[in-house]
Design a protein around this nucleic acid. Structure first.
Lengths: 271, 271
DNA sequence: AGGGCAAGTTCCATTATATGGAACATAATT
DNA sequence: AATTATGTTCCATATAATGGAACTTGCCCT
């Protein structure tokens, strides 16, 4: 019933990509529930997925049994706390994050604004850390969040570290959602912006993702380019002028380079 | 209502409780990798799980394909960032956490010490939120972390809100690991402590989980007792004397009650 | 170097597991 | 009370997972 097409020997990069059998279907369900605005009833899920009722019911039961989903007292499904526990460990033991942390704090102190660390996954940025000035409120708001690379400073900075061909492959067929009136509209605009960022060595986000929010970001090439990431300084447009962003750029680039160096020299018991 | 014990005609070979088929095995793998101290090589996993090589290889490949695991450049496996993204959404949309947040901040301001919010899952506490005073460093350190209920203030407070029979069921057969010299040693000691907490209305943790760390915690009964949780104020023993803990107790209880009330009155479109 | 050995990957017949249609239950609505 | 929407269980069948073995690859050792 599924995509059994696709050939034999050789890596088939199907557009549907995933060929992970049972797991793929279950993860799709997790995704569905995670992306919903709130708890979902059985029927909501039934109509959004194309599984028959019996099948869906068992799949959900298994996910609940494993703690990946939970059922509230009204019988509605939501993402389970077990995932939070998994993520907690993942984050706490993340070497890159740990190496970067002191540099993020220094950058925060030097600029007084919020500092972000994010890694590139495909054409998305996943935020790994965030250091704010005064208020520690909303601490988790960004961490773990995945945003399109084309409209974020960290994303564009990371993209600018890619080879031309690799870059083209990643952003081809991208859908450009207009978050604000300044959001880039298509591949051409994005390529131009990235090209500029590449020659400068850093990227800007001028209210492209969220109105009133600007940032300057620098790329981080870690693990021989196997991992691409970025660090940024972000603030409200009324306070963070283009001149300030420009002035901060060297600091951001320096922080990114320091992180890269530390990653290279990290104490490896192995390797 | 869950527990579909062995039962009918099916032949269950494995004694292992969960009967979630393929998913159960994959989640066990996730657990294995998540709990490891660092990245695991294929062989490490092979020897820790009892799967044959071919099988394990495919399972890991599927997990990687879905982003639940990742492979570093040395071919070692670690927990994938995709889980962080799932968790991020789970956390951001968690109604209980959102309702509690303002109360946590007020409690933090009133006491000047760190405030925790945790929910009870089985005999474990999963920390949902944390509000610190000055330093916002280590922000994630607790969130998502799962700790035994018997040695944490939040855990014992939540346990004290259980019915006797339910309580007995949850803590029977518990293994008591001695984290410090003050950690409770067995069910009897735990029951006595919980009994005292129940009459008081709040629980203490006097360096039972971590040396030099004390706290006072109150239980939160939400969703008609369907969900049990707790809120606590924590600090270093040299600064947080038993007298101070005692003095804070009413504040903590008040915060817990306020959260409970807010949960009851939350704007429910449904139900 | 090259021989030996461990680590990692692929293959495919067999078997276990997931599937999905339909019957069965339960709650909501009139 | 009847009707509809919603949730749950059952079981023959189709599908996907299994695991033994063959096959690479990379590393260490004399």
């Amino acid at each position: 019933m599924k995509e059994n097409l696709g050939s034999e020997s050789g890596k088939n990069k199907l557009r549907r990509g995933r060929e992970t059998g049972t797991l793929g279907k279950l993860v799709s369900l997790l995704d569905l529930v995670a992306l919903a605005d709130g708890p979902m009833r059985f029927t909501d899920i039934l109509s959004s997925s194309d599984q028959p009722r019996g099948t869906l019911h068992r799949q959900l039961s298994h996910l609940v049994e494993e703690g990946l989903l939970e059922v509230d007292r009204d019988g509605r499904y939501l993402i389970g706390l077990r995932l939070l526990t998994f993520a907690s460990r993942s984050w706490a033991r993340n070497e890159f994050r740990a190496v970067a942390e002191p540099h993020l704090h220094r950058l925060q102190e030097d600029t007084g604004e919020t500092v972000h660390l994010g890694v590139l996954r495909g054409a998305e940025v996943i935020y790994l850390d965030k250091v704010e000035g005064r208020q520690s409120v909303r601490m988790y708001s960004q961490i773990g969040n995945a945003s399109p690379a084309y409209c974020t400073g960290v994303g564009k900075a990371a993209l600018s570290a890619l080879e031309e061909t690799e870059l083209a492959a990643r952003i081809s067929g991208l859908e450009f959602r207009l978050y604000t009136e300044h959001t880039l509209r298509n591949v051409a605009e994005l390529l131009a912006d990235i090209s500029a960022a590449r020659t400068r060595g850093y990227a800007f986000d001028l209210e492209e993702h969220e109105s009133g929010i600007c940032c300057v970001a620098a790329p981080i090439r870690a693990d021989d380019g196997h991992m691409l990431a970025g660090v940024s300084v972000t603030g409200p447009a009324y306070r963070v002028t283009p001149q300030k962003l420009q002035a901060w750029a060297p600091l951001v680039v320096a922080a990114a380079d320091s992180i890269m160096m530390d990653m290279r020299n990290r104490l490896g018991p192995k390797r």
